[in-house]
């Protein structure tokens, strides 16, 4: 099982977190076109490679955070709390 570093709790078993998927920007609901809104709702890059995604420390501190994960190798970079910029690669936990 992957160890996912929560910015608060440190490395956690992935099963103790909730996965909220690919991170994407929410369009302005007042002005967006149906196409823009449904791109946000449904279309996904789904890369085989590095992906910025949302996790929720649901069995720990209950913080939502973003982390870059390589979807093939499972490598992880440093987590960030929302509103902050993704940082450099974190030291290897493995």
């Amino acid at each position: 099982m992957l160890l996912v570093p929560c910015p608060n709790c440190g490395p956690m078993n992935a099963a103790d977190l909730s996965y909220n998927g690919e991170s994407h920007r929410r369009p302005d609901p007042k002005t967006c076109t149906p196409e823009e809104w449904r791109t946000y709702l449904y279309l996904r890059e789904n890369p085989s490679g590095w992906l910025l995604e949302n996790w929720y420390c649901s069995s720990g501190c209950r913080r939502h955070f973003k982390i870059e994960r390589h979807t093939l190798t499972g490598e992880l970079r440093a987590p960030v709390l929302p509103g902050r910029k993704p940082g450099a690669t974190q030291g290897d936990m493995k």
Partner: peptide, 13 residues
Amino acid sequence: WNWIEMWLQTEHP
């Protein structure tokens, strides 16, 4: 609960 925390933390911190 998760839904509320998500909106509070990610969209309106």
